[in-house]
Nucleic acid binder design. Structure first.
Length: 488
RNA sequence: GCAGACGUAGCUCAGUUGGUUAGAGCGUCGGAUUGUGGCUCCGAAGGUCGGUGGUUCGAAUCCACUCGUCUGUACCA
């Protein structure tokens, strides 16, 4: 027997997903709400491309063992390396620097876009995802940072997350730096250990204070038995840090002063601890942040597809990055901004029931009984009339000779209404209008096929001229039912 | 990256100490029904048993390597 030719296997690269109609509509809705807040605050949109020259994206990674790890890079035909952007901040710094003479500072801008990371994907973690950023470039004062925090809080609420179910946590890198200096970890020679300590503090949510202490000391064994090496600090140094993240340490420095200024602004604007909170354990973006850092955290439980409760953690964050533009221009251009993880946040909002199944109704289906040119023209005209009346509609485009398949198609697409006109109806100037939703309900009471077919459930005969009015009545009735159900 | 678990049809899974042509349910497609969705009945398609190599008379089953998935951890600019 001849060997079958090998079929090409259709497969998606790992860590990437195809997006469904529901997902796309929900994302559009979210982005619309976020944009409205940013616009209200006086921010303008700008868009940069997905690719940048690799050197413009910058390298903030300390480990040079894997210089290209994390990004997708390709070599252009002039042999220059380009990379897909891994966030929206570095490209903005490039854009501002390149147009620094035309851009009026302070520059208040927002943008949504796909970013790409070449790393291990996991559930809810992809190699392409959407971020929605807002930044103020050319603003040296912490009032700009405070505004960012308040805008994040407003955005959470605009998305329907109730007060108390989210919190914006704020810290300042200068505070952390001060603490580290006080335990003798100042100076360049301790860069590596400082990083390890910061990463350990960042794990507070995950492992609790005891886990963090292990990571600051000898190290910690994970659930699979693998061992993570710690920072190897002295017991007294660990105590100092533990006191600090618990908020019981005492310290005076520039970072604390900045946090106090910001706290004062939050209070003056009526943003209490239930919305924005100073939290000494916030670390974030370990390399390029230079001042205030902040992140948005969800406080409600999220259950995944398997029904497990998962820790959702941060859905966005940001901070002050005073050095990024200077890399290009040599000029001090202080900036602050934050990023919302759109895809992640959407998962959470679905859980909260804030993004229900979309309210987009499938089209009305005009079925095809006769395939001659005259008949097809009549069917298409009905479709156009429905569309002109603002009703989503389509003519069946499959094999019209199998009429049963047309209704099956309508059923599977959740079409609300089907229009039927064969030669019998045509002769009398009539139409059959079938309410498919009501028909589905009635089908539960009918068990034998003959009755089902002959009773033609939820189907009425009308004059051709009454098409629009009848369809509209049925659609309105269905919309009322949906409303009652979602309320009850 | 490190550690562990797991890979059989589109999906969920059976498959005996290594033994003939690898099965079921659901789903898909066709028919019963040339002009009516659901139900029911009948039929069909769909598998390199993740891949490669090895042990063996014989491998879905045992071994090695590899790829992939999942869990934890690391990294996350």
């Amino acid at each position: 027997m001849a060997k079958k030719p090998n079929k090409l296997k259709a497969r998606l690269p790992r860590g990437f997903v195809d997006r469904s109609a529901d997902d796309i509509r929900a994302t559009d809705e979210m982005i619309g709400k976020i944009r409205a807040v940013y616009e209200q605050y006086g921010f303008d949109p700008v868009e940069t491309p997905a690719f940048e020259y690799t050197d413009c994206l910058g390298k903030f990674l300390p480990d040079t063992d894997r210089p290209n790890a994390g990004v997708f890079s390709v070599q252009d035909d002039d042999e220059q390396w380009m990379s897909l952007r891994y966030d929206l901040t570095a490209p903005l710094a490039r854009h501002v620097s390149e147009n620094i003479n035309e851009i009026q500072l302070p520059y208040r801008t927002y943008r949504a876009g796909w970013v790409f990371r070449n790393e291990k994907p996991g559930p809810g973690r992809f190699r392409q995802f959407m971020q929605f950023d807002a930044d103020t470039v050319g603003a040296p004062g912490v009032q700009a940072d405070a505004e960012m925090c308040m805008m994040m809080a407003d955005t959470m609420e605009a998305l329907g997350i109730p007060r108390g179910q989210y919190v914006i946590r704020v810290n300042n890198r200068k505070v952390l730096d001060g603490v580290l200096e006080s335990i003798g970890l100042g100076g360049e020679e301790n860069d590596e250990r400082r990083l390890t300590v910061l990463r350990a503090i960042d794990k507070l949510d995950k492992f609790g204070i005891e886990g963090v202490r292990l990571l600051l000391g000898e190290g910690r064994k994970d659930d699979s038995g693998d061992f993570t090496k710690g920072a190897g600090l002295e017991a007294s140094a660990i105590d100092t840090i533990a006191d600090f993240v618990a908020g019981t340490g005492s310290l005076e420095n520039e970072g604390i002063a900045e946090l106090n200024t910001m706290a004062g602004m939050f209070k003056a604007c009526g943003y209490g601890d239930d919305r924005i909170k100073i939290d000494p354990s916030v670390v974030r973006g370990l390399e390029y942040y230079t001042g205030p850092v902040y992140e948005a955290e969800l406080l409600f439980d999220v259950t995944n597809e398997k029904g497990d409760v998962v820790q959702f953690g941060s859905v966005g964050g940001g901070g002050r990055y005073d050095g990024l533009v200077k890399r290009f221009t040599g000029r001090d251009v202080p900036a602050t901004g934050f990023s919302i993880g759109v895809s992640r946040l959407m998962t959470a909002l679905k859980n909260l029931g804030k993004l229900g199944s979309s309210d987009v109704v499938a089209p009305v289906l005009v079925t095809v009984m006769d395939g001659d040119v005259d008949a097809l023209g009549r069917y298409q005209k009905m479709v156009q009339d429905l569309r002109s009346a603002g009703i989503r509609a389509e003519m069946y485009q499959g094999n019209w000779k199998k009429f049963g398949n047309q209704l099956k198609y309508a059923d599977r697409r959740n079409c609300p209404v089907a229009i039927i006109q064969g030669s019998d109806e045509r002769e009398t100037g009539e139409l059959q209008v079938k309410d498919l939703i009501e028909g589905k309900r009635l089908s539960e009471e009918i068990t034998d096929n003959i009755t089902w077919r002959e009773s033609r459930p939820a189907q009425i005969t009308i004059r051709e001229a009454d098409l629009i009015e009848t369809v509209r009545d049925i659609l309105d009735g269905q919309a009322d039912d949906r409303r009652r159900q979602s309320e009850g």
